[in-house]
């Protein structure tokens, strides 16, 4: 489902003439099968977030290839990646990334609006999705009126609304208390089990990393350990 081949990336900082090149990822190759949960763990500065940003298409890789759902996404331009993203990817962010001026319902409905789904259909789908994440009573609440756990559920509902085969999660429990974290991880497992959604999760928390079928550890931009979890 996700194939990363010899991916390398570096950042160039500083003004012209006095630039410094900082290598972030070095020759990374990862294979994620359909329906698999793969967690990428590493300390701050290990390059895990950069890896997710490259897979998400938020940054363009300097070297290497990224394939997702049979498409070589590393060759796509911004517009092409946007179209791919709306059909194939769901995102769960650490800080939820909900639009504050929109209600929970509107936030979840947004991907369907962008996709051009008819109003009647998207209203039905959104209501159903909010029910699925247990937020049917909070649909008219703005993000500021929801708890962290509820906001993350809205974020998950928004990621799931277009039925993506892949969900990319960046520190999904980073802003949650331990109780909410537990229930969210359980929910991710259910989604994976029930719908066969492939998850690529970035985390620094070993407890979160353990929900995966496989765990990959990054250090200084290189894979230092890769193993199947029991």
């Amino acid at each position: 489902m996700i194939t990363i081949k010899n991916l390398s990336h570096e950042f160039v900082i500083g003004k012209k003439g006095r630039q410094t090149v900082i290598p972030v990822l070095k020759d990374i190759s990862i294979e994620v099968d359909k329906g698999e949960i793969v967690t990428i763990i590493g300390r701050s500065g290990s390059g895990k977030s950069t890896l997710l940003n490259l897979v998400s298409g938020f940054i363009h890789p300097k070297e290497g290839e990224i394939w997702m759902n049979g498409v070589k996404v590393s060759d796509l331009n911004e517009a092409g990646f946007a179209d791919f993203r709306i059909d194939n990817l769901g995102f769960i962010f650490q800080s939820f990334q909900l639009i504050p001026s929109m209600t929970a319902f509107q936030n979840v409905e947004l991907p369907l609006i962008l996709k051009g789904v008819s109003e009647q259909e998207r209203k039905q789908q959104t209501a159903k999705m909010l029910e699925r994440v247990g937020l049917q009573d909070f649909q008219d609440h703005y993000p500021s009126e929801l708890s962290g756990g509820q906001q993350q559920r809205v974020s998950i509902a928004r990621a799931l609304i277009v039925n993506p085969p892949i969900i990319l999660a960046d520190e999904p429990t980073g802003s949650l208390d331990s109780e909410t974290e537990e229930s969210l991880l359980q929910f991710i497992k259910e989604l994976n089990h029930d719908y066969g959604i492939t998850f690529l999760i970035i985390t620094h928390d070993e407890k979160v990393a353990e929900i995966g079928d496989r765990m990959i550890e990054l250090k200084d931009g290189r894979i230092v350990e890769e193993g199947v979890l029991a």
Partner: peptide, 15 residues
């Protein structure tokens, strides 16, 4: 920030 979120979830630049 809203534009960033929209782009992240798949809004086309043309849109």
């Amino acid at each position: 920030p809203d534009i960033g979120i929209m782009k992240a979830i798949g809004a086309n630049p043309k849109t």
